[in-house]
């Protein structure tokens, strides 16, 4: 029972970490290697606003998310738009930016285990005999809510539909008046806000540390590679596969193996099925 509950919580945590990364890749084909850095950025920023500026917690979170989105948009407009389509340059540029952000925090003295965010609600409940704290329940609730919100956004709003168009065929979307650079910037903004959202939901469960930036990036990549790059459905399923695999190794082998599981998942996928296990099949063979 414990494994089931904690497996679900861990899986949804992974999905939250990976969602922004998949979204950006799915829409603009940019692998955002600064994703983990934005996660940490949002965490520290919330901490700073909360503790140094003394603003209320919800406001601190909101401001941090807005700043993450803006930072993402700036990266997109300033850097990515100029190099789009050259995957290697995109990887190098975003990775360099990510490292710069993370090491910038380290340089500014944000190291050690002293930085924590408070949980949204204190306390815990017993569900079927398993004690679960409220923050972990929030992870599940908010994780599902974020997925639902994104789904609705991409089916019902003009911008969301435009992003779906760009994701499927950039040039065809362009012919319909959709500006692909603008769409890429919006996607990057949303993706980075999602990284930040994952941070403020998940970080109260532990400390804010620089290394989380690298871990989150690897988890996000693992989920996306296993799920098939750019496929949301695949990413969610992959989160559950990797999430449960991690919880099982923690329970039966040893707790330090979480990262090993993620890396193994990447390796195995790339060897067996480089296009991912749950990615969209190519349904449309040109019909003439």
């Amino acid at each position: 029972m414990e494994i089931l509950f904690y497996g679900i919580i861990n899986s949804i945590s992974l999905a939250l970490m990976a969602l922004g990364f998949t979204l950006v890749y799915g829409i603009s084909r940019v692998p955002n290697f600064a994703h983990g850095a934005l996660y940490v950025f949002a965490g520290f920023l919330t901490w700073i606003i909360l503790n140094k500026l003394g603003l209320p917690y919800p406001l601190a979170i909101l401001l941090a998310l807005i700043c993450s989105a803006l930072l993402g948009a700036v990266i997109s407009m300033g850097v990515l738009v100029r190099i789009r389509g050259m995957e290697m340059s995109e990887v190098i540029a975003t990775y360099a930016l990510g490292v710069a952000i993370l090491e910038g925090f380290r340089w500014a003295g944000f190291k050690g285990m002293t930085y924590t965010l408070p949980p949204f609600f204190k306390g815990s409940v017993q569900i079927l005999g398993v004690p679960i704290d409220y923050q972990r329940i929030m992870v599940v609730v908010l994780g599902v809510a974020v997925l639902a919100a994104l789904w609705l956004f991409t089916r019902l709003t003009r911008m969301g539909l435009a992003l779906r168009g760009i994701a499927q065929d950039e040039r065809a979307a362009m012919m319909l008046g959709i500006d692909s650079d603008f769409a890429a910037t919006i996607a990057m903004g949303i993706g980075c806000a999602l990284a930040g959202l994952a941070a403020v939901i998940l970080l109260p469960l532990g400390n804010i540390v620089i290394e989380a930036g690298y871990n989150v990036l690897i988890f996000a990549i693992a989920v996306c590679v296993v799920g098939g790059l750019g496929s949301w459905g695949g990413a969610v399923i992959a989160s559950f596969v990797i999430g449960f695999a991690q919880i099982l190794t923690v329970a039966y082998i040893r707790p330090q193996f979480q990262m090993v599981v993620a890396l193994l998942a990447i390796l195995v996928t790339l060897i067996i099925r480089p296009s991912g296990f749950f990615g969209r099949q190519k349904e449309l063979e040109e019909r003439v």
Partner: peptide, 30 residues
Amino acid sequence: AREGIILCPERRRIFPESSVLENLKIGAYL
């Protein structure tokens, strides 16, 4: 496109994962 010049390309380039209705809705961006 905003000025009203719309290209309907060779080989159609339909959005394959979107439904017919969604293809039309994406078309209605402007």
